[in-house]
């Protein structure tokens, strides 16, 4: 009886060692296989402004509340219009800061007089919830200088961005962490 026990014991040991090697081998070779395909710097998520269709999903899809997506203005592209289609709602009767004329649901756009006839539009990111109403207005009627970006001080960099999954135009993409923003005035479509 003792003999049999030791025999089965040694067989078990053999299986164990074999299994151990079998599992260790791929795990240890993985880094070798992927050595050419790994990236020390990693990725972050960003919105390609030229693919974005301002569908409003950024506001609701982000895991953060409010969304880490904020509107930003590409000043070199901005027309500084008095009649800003990103600031004023459609059918606005007067071009001023009155509540009844504003498009932004959270009042996040700041309109500032620069000089006759120009107005500067900046975004208060603490108020902006990334709804993209202004982006749509500017893209449809203006120069398209207002655009959405994922703000990396707010983004928690999910392994898969929840917005990317929902984005209808595949505009949310991985970009190298060293260049985390896609600034519209610098990129061409």
């Amino acid at each position: 009886m003792k003999e049999r026990k030791s025999k089965s014991g040694s067989r078990r040991d053999f299986v164990k060692t074999a299994g151990r090697l079998l599992l260790a081998a791929p795990v240890l070779t993985l880094p070798v296989i992927l050595s050419g395909k790994s990236d020390a710097k990693g990725y972050v998520w960003q919105i390609d402004p030229y693919k974005c269709t301002s569908c409003e999903l950024c506001r609701t899809s982000c895991v953060m509340t409010p969304s880490a997506v904020k509107c930003t203005n590409a000043f070199p592209m901005c027309g500084y219009c008095d009649f800003c289609p990103g600031y004023l709602r459609q059918g606005a009767k007067a071009f001023n800061t009155a509540a009844e004329n504003q498009l932004c649901p959270t009042g996040a756009i700041i309109r500032k007089f620069v000089e006759e006839p120009y107005f500067e539009y900046t975004i208060d990111e603490t108020l902006c919830d990334g709804c993209s109403k202004c982006v749509k207005g500017c893209a449809d009627f203006g120069n398209g200088s207002l655009y959405l970006q994922i703000m990396h001080n707010l983004c928690v960099n999910c392994n898969q961005c929840a917005i990317a999954r929902k984005c209808p135009s595949d505009a949310v993409i991985r970009v190298p962490a060293t260049e985390p923003y896609m600034r519209k005035e610098l990129k061409k479509s």
Partner: peptide, 25 residues
Amino acid sequence: AQQQRFPRPEFEGGYTFPTHQFLNQ
């Protein structure tokens, strides 16, 4: 149209574009 519909303004008063801080992770 995603186009430059309105020309870029020529500011007289020495206006400079505000710099936006794009914060990094």
